[in-house]
Design a protein around this nucleic acid. Structure first.
Lengths: 194, 194
DNA sequence: TATGATACGGAGGGCCCCTCCGTTTTTCAA
DNA sequence: TTGAAAAACGGAGGGGCCCTCCGTATCATA
């Protein structure tokens, strides 16, 4: 704690910055070598220094992401005054997708093993894709829903929406989202954006 | 390999089954104690036996999940002949949500640290939720989209949809799904299911 | 410059991953 | 029934990572 009026030590400030940069680099690369010890090595500081600055894995993650999150927050503010309501919403959602794109490697690195699923999904997704495809194709053939969404896309959207929820009652919200998604599928590809 | 006509050893068959049951139990519980060594301990076999039956973490995961995946696949076949097209699709999607509910603990366990995000999301989601809420509220106020979807739900849906994609070109499919989602939001809460 | 406050580094205990190989169990033929 | 070959078992052990602890080094102030 720096309750006193003392200035923070310069080496402390410098090391904190070094650690943040190293963490961004190491985590973005992802993979198994994304350990906290690797971050410390890359920053050129001892492991103890890393833990003093960021007591938990999550603390480090949060510090690195904070700036980017604020960027997205600012973008929303900007869009709110510069675009029509629905288009502003759509535009922000789209920016968020791009944001996740550049940073998902980092998220995977934090999960330590998330990106190892390529072999797993081979069987599971193939099987489930066939299942959903059989339903999707029939609905499309009946002319009741749009035809430009693939079963893979739909499946991933579904699993993804379920995947991140943790609160009690999350199932209700996912079911509501499923209804929205289906409503969206119902109309033919409308006058899209831009 | 058992290229010969020899019967498989009974202890081998028994241990394989013990391991599958132990893995389901340990992984469902999730948490940090979901190590492969814990699975072996619970099954009452040596760690070497586990690795002989399931050389990789993914092999064990796949074996446990195979039955449940096939169950979902069968359900689709059944629905295909017993319900109207769109309702069959919706119904299957909903069953899938329930399926993920019971098994997400296992998925988290395999990722080793995925469930540690509760503290992380506190800040990040709060910030991003405010951002999306500002846009959502305005669109709702303008009467252009339905009002029963919370910003939290929308955000999680979005992140989730992005989260599971790995193939090149995944961004396009996510963007397409975002369009579907928005189209779905556009109409007022229609004549929902059941 | 002296000194107390602050930060640094890395050794070390614990847990886990995965491999390797001596030991035990099982199958099958005689 | 018996015994030898085949198959499977178990766990020690090397390596890596997590995180803590504390003696040492550095910095801010007087």
């Amino acid at each position: 704690m720096d309750r006193s009026g003392r200035r923070p030590r310069t080496d402390s400030v410098r090391n904190r910055e070094l650690l943040l940069q190293a963490a961004a680099a190491v985590f973005s690369a992802g993979g198994p070598e994304a350990s906290l010890e690797a971050v410390a090595r890359r920053a050129g500081v001892g492991i103890g220094t890393l833990y003093r600055h960021f007591p938990t894995r999550e603390a480090l993650f949060e510090a690195v992401y904070r700036r980017e999150v604020e960027q997205l927050s600012d973008l929303a503010e900007q869009l709110r005054t510069e675009a029509a309501p629905v288009e502003a919403l759509r535009s922000w959602l789209r920016s968020n997708v791009a944001f996740v794109a550049t940073k998902k490697g980092m998220a995977a690195a934090l999960a330590l093993a998330v990106n190892k699923k390529s072999d797993l999904t081979a069987y599971s997704y193939d099987r489930l894709t066939r299942a959903v495809a059989s339903l999707l194709d029939r609905a499309v053939a009946a002319g009741e829903i749009r035809a430009d969404i693939s079963p893979e896309d739909l499946l991933r959207a579904l699993v993804g929406m379920s995947y991140l929820h943790d609160q009690p009652g999350w199932q209700e919200s996912v079911l509501r989202l499923v209804d929205v998604l289906v409503d969206g599928l119902r109309r033919p590809p409308g006058p899209g954006r831009s």
